[in-house]
Design a protein around this nucleic acid. Sequence first.
DNA 1: GTCTATAAGGGGATAGAC
DNA 2: GTCTATCCCCTTATAGAC
Lengths: 190, 190
Amino acid sequence: MKSDTKTLILDVAQRLIQTRGHNGFSFRDLSREVGVRTASIHYHFPTKTDLAVALIRRYREMIGEAMADIAVQQDSLGKRLDATTRLYMDTLHNGSRICVCAALAGEYLSLPGAVQVELRKLIDDSERWISRFLTEGRARGEISKDNDPHSLARLWYAALQGALVVSRAGNHEILRDAAGALKNLTLRGM
Amino acid sequence: MKSDTKTLILDVAQRLIQTRGHNGFSFRDLSREVGVRTASIHYHFPTKTDLAVALIRRYREMIGEAMADIAVQQDSLGKRLDATTRLYMDTLHNGSRICVCAALAGEYLSLPGAVQVELRKLIDDSERWISRFLTEGRARGEISKDNDPHSLARLWYAALQGALVVSRAGNHEILRDAAGALKNLTLRGM
DNA sequence: GTCTATAAGGGGATAGAC
DNA sequence: GTCTATCCCCTTATAGAC
């Protein structure tokens, strides 16, 4: 059993960050939900910064695995973009969560330096995965050669992150509409 | 002189929300920067919720005026989208701020109900302005009739908000690249 | 690994003097 | 309008018993 306290703390902390942000939860909140005292949480993660860093690192690995799965299971650009969009939709529909990236980036200038560093790695990684999908799709003629896959990847990533954030506060249809419109534009005429 | 304490409090609070988020600043922070004691801030805004609500309301008016100016000064869809993009770029380059919308939406589930309500109004308003630009542009034949202006407006708003958030934490070129790519896709072949 | 107890400071908010 | 003084609770974090 690796479903021990340490893992449970990370699970709960991640959900709290995705719903309330880094400054929106405390060790006390964690304590209540995990079922141990705050001192026990400090045993596993000496400081809140240690916890946040470990959490982002784990999240980055999870995203990496999910995107690698998509790369293996989906053979066309259209399907890969759909699957990526679905990944974000699932996040939103799982307790109104947004991506850890957008949640933390929103309060970026209040974050400890070590957390900022991990966050940048998460963004770089995620952007690279979408960039790879677009580059491979372009090589296979699935989108116009006029497109710069790197800029287009940044657009996709920004749009997905932003749609998640705005959808939660506004209307959940925004994510579906925005992603649908972007897919149409990306593959138009192909 | 309307540049009184109340206005100064709103100015500083807005900057702090745009850089650190709602849970990332305190009355003490305001006190230091405005130059009055926290009790004086409570005189102008009894609770932090009152302050946030007033601030979003004012921000919404400012955005409305800026978008109305764009509607008057720019006569083509391309120019209007460029001017809107520039509005967001200016925000990012003014002390690494993001839009009040994205800053608050990131910690949505930790916000007081009254603040959530004001935030939704801000999102609706902003989306409507972009939707109007796209609808008018479509009627003038500046984009394909295949586009649904409403979905496209949601894409534009999500992309701009997300690009701002991700750019600040990652790389400021993301906003330029994402907005450039989206403009190309939107006007492609026209 | 988890607990109790506690430190030292920050949080929003109020009463009442000036 | 702004101040001092204060309330009461929450915050992260540590020491040391079990």
